[in-house]
Design a protein around this nucleic acid. Structure first.
Length: 494
DNA sequence: CATGAGGAGTTGC
DNA sequence: GCAACTCCTCATG
């Protein structure tokens, strides 16, 4: 089949929707938006994951004389002691004009260098993100954050309608070639035996972002494989709407490793534990301050976060927003990424079932495009997220996440915490009072059975276990008895 | 008939 | 020992 050289407006490649609950990108006013060109986007993925990322030695980009050092970050914040500590850290080399290494995420845009932008489209601008992987010809179809940790952009944040400043035309065939070159490069450079054996089945948030190929569909593009190496392609079950959904496991594995390193380095610099549950009040404040500065978010009264890590972890997104109206979503998402990172860390290092957060932020206002896309993938995500024996530290639940030792009530809260994934199976009726309804008893039971490695699990048994909670004070009968409706007792509903 | 409730024995950690 | 699983009977709408 002969490929047509189809001019594509990069503008249109922007995904319209992604799950709400990722971190919030910085405000659009901070600078010109990135105008990425390639939908194959490992770089983007790594941006999604990398908070305060030091460069990876194996991923160095050549020195670029055209790159000027990013401005000090944050520029005018008087409370940047944590950043100073961070960039004094040997793992975070001080930004220098001659190297990308250790550069601080910049909020300004510069003409892209040959190493981090689309060579075939010299007018395309991307935001300089020198501490990310620089891969030739590899740019993102998504708007970028300074740190790149954003997985998704919600309708409530500044990115709900990304409007790039330029509309550029790119050659789709060139783009595909670039993509192929990149994939080959990445395959050689990144795929390690360790990653080969890893099959993370969690990180729903990331998967959601990665599986959002709606931009391809909208443009009637020939589906562009996002696969790396031998990663297989899968067809969604969408009938006429079928899209080619990439198997993102390996991409995810690489990204997770990167994230883990980022988190570890930040922990070292801030002197805090990688596990938020271990944080002291001081650690929490340090982390909040660091995150605010890192994303150029407005400062919030630190007294709003006078709590230890366990309390922080227990906060809902709404509570984050209440305590930090302009930064709550980002903080919440960042915390989620940290916890995810820690969970995957265990996975990377151990063959045993690993606790990994699956209790991802809600996506109540998830926009239509993604909603449809995600609905198609829901079953797969269900299977994936549960088959690995993962679980979450859901608000209020101090579960040692992920193992088969998770309690049923924790598992239910985990499902409830992922309405974009499990909303059709279980949902809150009255969140504040802990009232929820099991919409699909078979599915919930199946998921529970998978988590507990009990193939014979059914709703009859599951409900029996739930009823045991009546005596234990974990759950109670609802005032007005309704089928498949249960209620958590306080404080289990928190 | 599907589901809820609860007793009681068993299983796995 | 505990939490959950399993099987069971009975009640309810």
């Amino acid at each position: 089949m002969q490929r047509k050289r189809t001019p594509v407006r990069i503008f249109d490649c922007m995904p319209q929707t992604v799950p709400r609950s990722g971190c919030s990108p910085p405000s659009a006013s901070q600078g010109e938006r990135a105008v990425p060109g390639s939908p194959a986007d490992l770089q983007h993925l790594l941006r999604l994951l990398g908070a305060a990322s030091p460069p990876e030695p194996m991923l160095h980009s050549p020195p670029n004389p055209h790159n000027k050092p990013p401005p000090p970050y944050p520029e005018d914040n008087t409370n940047n002691v944590f950043l100073e500590r961070l960039y004094d850290f040997e793992g975070y080399p001080t930004p220098s004009p001659s190297s990308d290494e250790g550069s601080i995420p910049a909020v300004t845009l510069q003409p892209s260098s040959p190493y981090n932008s689309l060579q075939y489209s010299p007018q395309v601008y991307i935001k300089e993100e020198p501490n990310r992987l620089a891969v030739p010809g590899f740019a993102s179809p998504y708007p970028l954050s300074p740190s790149g940790s954003c997985v998704s952009y919600g309708s409530h944040n500044q990115y709900s309608s990304p409007v790039p400043q330029h509309e550029e035309y790119i050659d789709i065939e060139e783009l595909l070639k670039e993509n192929q070159i990149l994939q080959e490069s990445v395959q050689q450079s990144y795929i390690t035996p360790k990653i080969e054996v890893e099959e993370p089945r969690d990180h729903i948030l990331l998967r959601s972002a990665l599986e959002d190929t709606s931009f391809q569909k909208r443009l009637n593009l020939r589906p562009i494989p996002l696969e790396l190496g031998s990663v297989k392609m899968e067809e969604s079950s969408g009938g006429d709407d079928s899209l080619v959904a990439p198997d993102i496991d390996r991409v995810l594995s690489m990204a997770i490793e990167q994230t883990k390193r980022d988190v570890d380095n930040t922990c070292t610099v801030l002197g805090i534990s990688p596990d938020p549950m271990q944080w002291t009040t001081g650690d929490v404040k340090a982390w909040v301050m660091f995150t605010l500065q890192h994303y150029n978010l407005p400062m919030v009264p630190m007294e709003n976060f006078t709590m230890d890590g366990a309390a922080l972890v227990a906060l809902t997104e709404e509570e984050f927003n209440h305590r930090a109206p302009q930064a709550g979503s980002t903080l919440y998402a960042q915390l989620e990424i940290w916890r995810t990172s820690q969970g995957s860390d265990h996975q990377q290092l151990s063959a045993s079932p690993i606790p990994t957060p699956a209790g991802l932020p809600s996506a109540d206002d998830m926009s239509d495009g993604l909603a449809k896309n995600q609905e198609l993938a829901t079953d797969k995500i269900d299977e994936d997220s549960e088959s690995a024996g993962t679980s979450a530290t859901v608000g209020g639940g101090k579960a040692k996440t992920g193992s088969t030792h998770i309690h049923l009530w924790q598992f239910l809260k985990e499902l409830l915490a992922s309405p974009h994934v499990h909303g059709s199976a279980i949902r809150w009726l009255d969140r504040s009072n802990g009232v929820f309804k099991i919409e699909d008893s078979v599915r919930v039971a199946r998921l529970w059975g998978k988590r507990k490695n009990r193939p014979a699990m059914n709703y009859d048994k599951l409900s029996r276990s739930i009823r045991q909670y009546y005596k234990k004070g974990i759950m109670k009968k609802t005032e007005r008895s309704q089928r498949l409706v249960y209620q958590f007792c306080h404080p289990y509903c928190l």
